[in-house]
Nucleic acid binder design. Structure first.
Lengths: 149, 149
DNA sequence: TTGCTCCTCACGTCACGTGAGGTGGC
DNA sequence: TTGCTCCTCACGTCACGTGAGGTGGC
């Protein structure tokens, strides 16, 4: 049995990820990320596993712009998978394993499709901006080359 | 003088862009998109120019995830540019023109850098998802090939 | 003991969602 | 005239921001 080390204070974690302590407390409030430890005085202690989850949650929030409910669904499924892996050898049901793997594959594929879509839109937007830049340069050249009317 | 045609009702516009009428009314409330016409009875009439602006606002919202304040700054600058172009020949100040073009180039370049950053993050995320898919397939293969223990 | 960080309310804000109750246009 | 769409309040919600007032740990 290895001890679960809960070493990080909320302030450190917040600064590390560029969020407010309020955000982390809110995520606990809605049950999204509950720190695995507390100091005797009652302040939150985040473990390395907590950090990993926070990273994932913020990735889904920042990159995909998902609502917290949706993020909870995704990381919830991922956590069930991790839990099963941890108790791999005393697993009571192989079918349950397969079930969860299939569910994760589905979630993963959905996400992947969503990302591909976003990538396409972003690339189109980038080309738009490049075209705009080109036009602006043309206008600027015209303005600065023409003497005052 | 061509008449400004304000032909689209709020319901059509909302459906076309997949937003609620409440959203369009809210954008008017904060001064972001004010429909250029009204029916005698008082219902909003959006012109083609309004449609273009809505498209731009939603693009910046959906693709970049900007706050409405920031979006207002961007489309505000773009509108000043359009206004100047419309009164191009009776422009009172060439320096003012150059000033605005330079401002737009700056906004455009900032956006472009932001998009490049987002693209990089999204691509990394896509690779992550592909790696996850690979691992899930491996686990699935292992689970389904091994007979019950 | 002194700061700095942490804590819990609790009200404020942004970008809308969601009815309530009433008028308008093909 | 009947629907369907539009209108204006106005309160609710999500994801936090922002103090207020108090305790905790190196």
């Amino acid at each position: 049995m290895t001890e679960v080390e809960s070493t990080y204070r909320i302030g450190e974690v917040a600064e590390r990820f560029g969020v407010s302590t309020r955000t982390l407390r809110y995520y606990e409030e809605v049950g999204l990320i509950v720190p695995s430890g507390k100091s005797p005085g009652g302040s939150r202690r985040y473990s390395d596993a907590d950090i990993t989850r926070i990273e994932r949650v913020l990735e889904l929030r920042n990159v995909m712009g998902f609502e917290l409910d949706r993020i909870a669904d995704i990381v919830g499924a991922e956590n069930r998978f991790e839990d099963l892996r941890d108790e791999y050898h005393r697993s009571d049901s192989l079918e349950r394993h397969v079930e969860i793997v299939v569910e994760l594959m589905s979630i993963n594929d959905d996400l992947r499709a969503h990302v591909a879509e976003k990538l396409a839109v972003l690339e189109a937007f980038a080309h738009d901006l490049d075209a705009r830049a080109e036009r602006l340069r043309a206008v600027q050249a015209e303005l600065t080359s023409t003497p005052a009317t």
